[in-house]
């Protein structure tokens, strides 16, 4: 088989575009030429966000909620009563955390699960404030019996993502990485 020079040049060009340096930004062109896996949710990369949110609970990736949800959740007033607890932050810290959450929210992300979340929350009159209120998330968990979540001492609530999603900290929520405490054969 004769090697076609045009094909070889094209192949080399595509390989160069394949480089992660070309596709660092989350935009259409970046997504198109980025061949790393974008199936999940973009992991938390901001140290301050991880520390400030992770001090009290699992640092949920911003890509798990749309921008409008973060806008409502991350205000001085809202954090005074953050689901029943006072989670107030300093002004500068709040600004930085909010900025990171808004910039990486589901509707700004090209990661597949975030796009699914953005799609299922778009056009809703009511802004979801909990990840567990998002239609896509609800649907993914609707077949789980109560004994595996609320009735399970190792889980207690759907809010504890990382109890079952073993790679949740990396933004991976794939079914193959799920291990429900006390129910090793949950998928059978």
């Amino acid at each position: 088989m004769r090697v076609n020079i045009k094909s070889a040049t094209l192949l080399a060009g595509m390989l160069l575009l394949n480089s992660p340096y070309v596709s660092a930004e989350e935009n259409f062109a970046g997504w198109l030429f980025d061949f790393s896996r974008n199936k999940e949710v973009s992991p938390v990369t901001d140290k301050q966000y991880r520390t400030e949110c992770g001090d009290c609970h699992f640092p949920y990736q911003p890509g798990l909620l749309p921008e409008k949800s973060w806008q409502k959740l991350l205000t001085e007033e809202a954090l005074k009563d953050h689901f029943g607890d006072n989670a107030e932050l300093g002004k500068d810290v709040l600004e930085s955390v909010r900025e990171y959450a808004l910039a990486n929210s589901a509707d700004k992300s090209w990661h597949k699960r975030s796009r699914k979340i953005a799609g299922s929350t778009a056009g809703l009159e009511e802004t979801p404030l909990r990840i567990t209120e998002v239609r896509y998330i609800k649907r993914k968990h609707q077949e789980l019996p109560e004994k595996m979540v609320k009735g399970n001492k190792g889980v207690k609530s759907l809010s504890f993502c990382d109890k079952c999603h073993t790679q949740a900290a990396s933004g991976v929520y794939d079914q193959d990485t799920v291990l429900i405490p006390n129910f090793p054969d949950w998928n059978d």
Partner: peptide
């Protein structure tokens, strides 16, 4: 990011249960 292991920090810190227990 897994090297920083927020998951392990989370499970060892009693405070981590405060917010999510709301449900």
């Amino acid at each position: 990011v897994t090297k920083l292991s927020p998951t392990s920090m989370y499970s060892q810190n009693p405070q981590s249960y405060m917010l999510a227990l709301n449900e």
